[in-house]
Design a protein around this nucleic acid. Structure first.
Length: 358
DNA sequence: AATGCGGGGGT
DNA sequence: ACCCCAGCATT
């Protein structure tokens, strides 16, 4: 098949000007490629780099990952966000190990059937590990193609996804799909950047429709608007006999599979005086003897769709109250083996943020 | 088709 | 403040 001018120029740039090292570059082990791609979903290379190295070091093979304890894997993922990626990673590692005898699937259809693997990740694995001709379509590819070909179809619409996927596969270098896919993403990340693209030294300048029309900084188009909401989470860090009360989040909500302390969610800000804490414990847990240790200052955490605000109220009690469904008492020395959201780790790791002591 | 999921980094 | 990042699952 004849290559487009775009493809030729991109591949030439890749040969002479692309110097972007990454720990998984040139890797051919499908397990390692898969792991790197899951880590990199909606995550910048710089942020995922260290996580990849720690995962490979701890779990060199898919069998090692499949055999690991859930908590250990989540602890390693802690801080990376989008925790369902980690849950699906474990599900797929165990599926490959048990159902496929450890043999990683080697067709696009079988790869895309894995939990946590969608069109982008399947194309990446298929091309990098098996040299199959599937074009990746990620944020970089949307941006590069929208600008170079001057396409103003919204990339977050069904029509846009179809249009860009079709074009991406049309300009794919089918002789070396892996190298091409790596090249277009590197090009998007280093030259055709979201902000301050390097048009003045770009080898595609003369054929770039966006550059000719002066619309580079308007592309790509998105049509959906982000809505945000505020939540107040009040955490009671309850200690009793060297143990602390924790809960694994399971609800259809943020931080699924991570741990938290006893939580009270409110629709608005609340004050926590010593009297109010004592009243709350009496009403909620039927505990009357509460030693209030500290109340933290107001803490905030900005998520993509939510602004989390809240405080940490640390107390000690003498006797374990009535059984609390879905909560468990964990030895204080074991708390560090559990994965917590950043909102909670901020509190745990910053003693000075404990606030008012009682 | 629409919604929601984290945390880091840039402007 | 707002946007983006090697997207995906769910409804």
């Amino acid at each position: 098949m004849q290559q487009s001018a775009f493809t030729k120029k991109l591949m030439h740039w890749n040969e002479v000007d692309n110097n972007r090292p990454m720990p998984w570059k040139g890797e051919t082990d499908p397990y390692k490629i898969w792991l790197s791609e899951i880590i990199l979903q909606q995550t910048q290379v710089k942020q995922g780099w260290g996580y990849y190295e720690r995962f490979i070091s701890n779990f060199p093979t898919v069998q090692d990952l499949a055999a690991a304890k859930d908590e250990a894997v989540f602890k390693l993922w802690e801080g990376l966000g989008y925790y369902n990626r980690c849950k699906n990673l474990l599900t797929s590692a165990r599926f490959i190990t048990k159902e496929l005898n450890g043999k990683f699937p080697n067709t696009y259809d079988d790869i895309v059937g894995l939990k946590g693997v969608g069109p982008y990740t399947a194309a990446a694995i298929a091309s990098f590990a098996f040299n199959l001709p599937y074009a990746v379509v990620d944020g970089n590819v949307f941006r590069v193609l929208a600008r170079v070909f001057g396409i103003d179809t919204a990339i977050d619409s069904t029509k846009g996804k179809q249009q860009f996927t079709k074009l991406a596969n049309k300009v794919l270098d089918t002789n070396q799909p892996g190298i091409y896919n790596q090249a277009i993403m590197d090009f998007g990340a280093t030259m055709c950047k979201p902000f301050a693209p390097q048009c003045h030294i770009c080898p595609l300048q003369s054929t770039c429709v966006g550059y000719q029309k002066g619309s580079v900084n308007l592309l790509p188009i998105k049509e959906k608007v982000l809505t945000k909401k505020s939540r107040w989470l009040y955490y009671f860090v309850i200690e009793c006999g060297g143990k602390t009360l924790v809960h694994k989040r399971t609800a259809n909500d943020i931080w699924q599979s991570l741990y938290e302390f006893y939580v009270l969610e409110a629709n608005e800000q609340q004050d926590w005086t010593k009297t109010q804490v004592q009243q709350w414990f009496q009403q909620q847990l039927n505990v009357s003897d509460v030693a209030l240790i500290s109340v933290s200052p107001l803490q905030k955490q900005q998520l993509t769709h939510q602004l989390i605000k809240g405080q940490f109220i640390s107390v000690k009690i003498d006797a374990i109250p009535k059984t609390l469904a879905h909560y468990e008492w964990v030895n204080n020395s074991d708390i560090h083996t559990l994965a917590f959201p950043k909102f909670i780790n901020q509190y745990l790791e910053t003693p000075t943020a404990q606030g008012q002591l009682f």
